[in-house]
């Protein structure tokens, strides 16, 4: 990567990614359960429970069922959670308690490579969870193909964006409990107010404006376009927003982590 803001990172970061994959493979049976079962729970709750109360939702001038509306948001939030929680709590445990990064520094790896490996691994978990959810959702006929396959490349971008976000917070938190703050003030509000469970136009104008700055809003817009096969003019801007967001937070996470750990 030779982007201006990035510190130099060689392809060696893959070694860090491989380490996490090795650990993941040891417990894959457990790791696979949430992305396979969670959609079933949501479909039961929204499809059987809420749908009856709510009926159809008007989305971009079309009436769509509430389940169709919620499913792509569910994909997007899963992508966010997998990326964010990997580089926040999990990376923090590796960094602080397990001294994994210290050990890696005794090898040819550099700190930016270690952190890049962690963020790319977080994105990989986002992709894995999306890939596991797709067949389950398809089995219920909730996805339109082939457009829905676009959620996979989208999960790479979303995973990098939220992986970088999580790592940014890891670089500044004092202790592991401190993550409650960004989760409570940033992640949970996004989960609720990014056009996930109700269309953005239900919000007052000022809140809609705020929501447009939330990365999850754009991930949801893009995911919904993919699963419904609905094109709209805002999508290129959403894509651009997520890309710029990632290009800001990724190098920021690298430099802040270097500051935190290299003394």
């Amino acid at each position: 990567m030779k982007l201006p803001l990035f510190p130099p990172v060689s392809g060696r970061f893959v070694r860090v990614w491989q380490r996490n994959l090795t650990v993941y493979k040891k417990s894959w049976k457990v790791s696979f359960i949430p992305p396979l079962l969670e959609p079933l729970l949501y479909i039961a709750a929204f499809g059987l429970g809420l749908s009856g109360l709510i009926g159809d939702v008007s989305y971009q001038g079309k009436a769509i069922s509430y389940v169709d509306f919620v499913v792509p948001a569910l994909l997007a939030t899963t992508i966010m959670y997998n990326g964010f929680f990997e580089t926040s709590y999990n990376s923090f445990v590796r960094m602080y308690y397990q001294k994994t990064f210290d050990a890696m520094m005794a090898t040819p790896l550099t700190m930016p490579e270690i952190i890049t490996g962690e963020i790319v691994w977080a994105a990989t978990k986002s992709v894995l969870s999306a890939a596991l959810m797709l067949p389950v959702l398809s089995a219920f006929g909730l996805l339109s193909y082939p457009a829905s396959l676009l959620t996979l490349p989208l999960s790479i971008l979303g995973g990098l964006a939220f992986g970088a976000t999580g790592m940014f917070f890891t670089s500044i938190v004092r202790g592991i409990e401190t993550f409650n703050l960004p989760v409570f003030l940033f992640i949970t509000p996004m989960f609720l107010f990014s056009g996930t469970f109700f269309p953005l136009d239900q919000l007052p104008a000022w809140a809609q404006g705020v929501a447009l700055f939330l990365p999850l809003t754009h991930l949801v817009l893009l995911a919904r376009a993919a699963t419904l096969g609905l094109w709209s003019a805002i999508l290129p801007f959403s894509l651009l927003y997520l890309a710029v967001y990632t290009l800001v937070f990724f190098p920021l996470a690298l430099t802040k982590m270097e500051k935190r750990l290299i003394k």
Binding site: V23, D102, T107
Partner: peptide
Amino acid sequence: GICQQDNSLDPDLTVLENLMVFSRYF
């Protein structure tokens, strides 16, 4: 080769895996 003061073994891995994963860094 560096043996740091604090044991920084990987608790997510077995003894042999610790060596194998480390070897990949080289």
